[in-house]
Design a protein around this nucleic acid. Sequence first.
DNA 1: TAGTGGTCTAGACCACTAG
DNA 2: TAGTGGTCTAGACCACTAG
Lengths: 233, 233
Amino acid sequence: MAVRNAYLEIVEMLLERIQSGELKQGDALPSEKALMEMTGIGRSTVRKGLAVLVNDGYIHAVQGKGYYVRAEKSHDFRLYFNETSTIETSADSISIINVDIIVPSEDLVRELNLTPNRKVVVIKRMITDGETRIALDCKYIPYSAKSPVVEKELYNATFPQMFTKEKALFDIIKNLKISVDRTDEEMAKILRTREGSPVVRIEQKLYDENKNPIGFGVTRFLGQYFKIKAISE
Amino acid sequence: MAVRNAYLEIVEMLLERIQSGELKQGDALPSEKALMEMTGIGRSTVRKGLAVLVNDGYIHAVQGKGYYVRAEKSHDFRLYFNETSTIETSADSISIINVDIIVPSEDLVRELNLTPNRKVVVIKRMITDGETRIALDCKYIPYSAKSPVVEKELYNATFPQMFTKEKALFDIIKNLKISVDRTDEEMAKILRTREGSPVVRIEQKLYDENKNPIGFGVTRFLGQYFKIKAISE
DNA sequence: TAGTGGTCTAGACCACTAG
DNA sequence: TAGTGGTCTAGACCACTAG
């Protein structure tokens, strides 16, 4: 063993038992001592692994008693909202699927408060972590000569940064909407998952200083990657 | 010293420097070794303190280099969405301010899709952490004979649990909306802060299995308590 | 009282950074 | 190479739980 870090062995072993249903909501986990004896790993390291699971909301600790499996996570999610840091540290894990100029749907016209015949730039990107496909990200921006269509800008830009040519970042107001959704056919295909699996859907809308919408974005994360690094600047 | 835990000394010392502006965005923090020497605290404990700050998004670590202050947190927030766990561990830190039956505002009629003359139960609660007043929480529920007006139920119930008499929890669909807001006069008074300070506003809407809205909630957290434990079940 | 998690130390070795 | 953070151990003592 020990190809991986020892504390990750703990994490993975316990996570597997939890996710397989072997350990159910409210069940007690093996004690730290038991885990030490089972694995031959030292206490600090066992604790570090347990801390990861506590931190991720899978389990909780009760002093004097033990660790217990937490309530179901179906409607339970954690977000770490900081687009810049995500982008900074994993620039190569965002890839552009395509960029298009489209005639907007009715919904989009409403969302972006568009005048008739105004077209929209669609930027579709995929977020990955190594080999794993995590999320699909679509940005919608009313088309104008200043629209960010240079690929290089798109790869690294956070949503608000796409507008810095026109607007000071300071003036951009954001609005977020979060819900639980399911993968549609297209998403399932791109993310190589099955249709209908749960996703966390995050909508972002950017407004200028006059409260006019200037951009609309939808990021959909596969539900199993409940620890989300999303886009907020 | 050492009235508090040693790792909290580290947390508080560094947090004060960051929040006072002495350490600015991008600045390097003292190294682990330096912190050990400055405080006489052992390395593991210093690291535990630093881990808290990393976890809370204040700083980040770069192996081989050091710890750095993260980007501004003005539009940057972290949520830990798990109402039950919050309630479990801090039941006495939620207090009811008042419960009322009101004639709903226009906005509320729209949000809850109310028929004319339907009244609404308003439950106003305050969330505190020790002496610190953290958040204001308002729930709006269409009035009916089954509305949860027994005080005991209110203290401990999470938002979806308020409906378990009528609906299976499983059938309740939730919708969240997050934005950055500012304290109004009432909130400033209750939370003992100044008017206009930034708050994170979280709206929750619950729907039944037919997508009819059955509850609407707004929780507003003082912005400085960026580590939010909110209400999602 | 025995068992459990919480805090803390001292020390070791590794991986990465930057001159 | 010197300095930094990352992982890990063995051991100590404390606080809490529950019989």
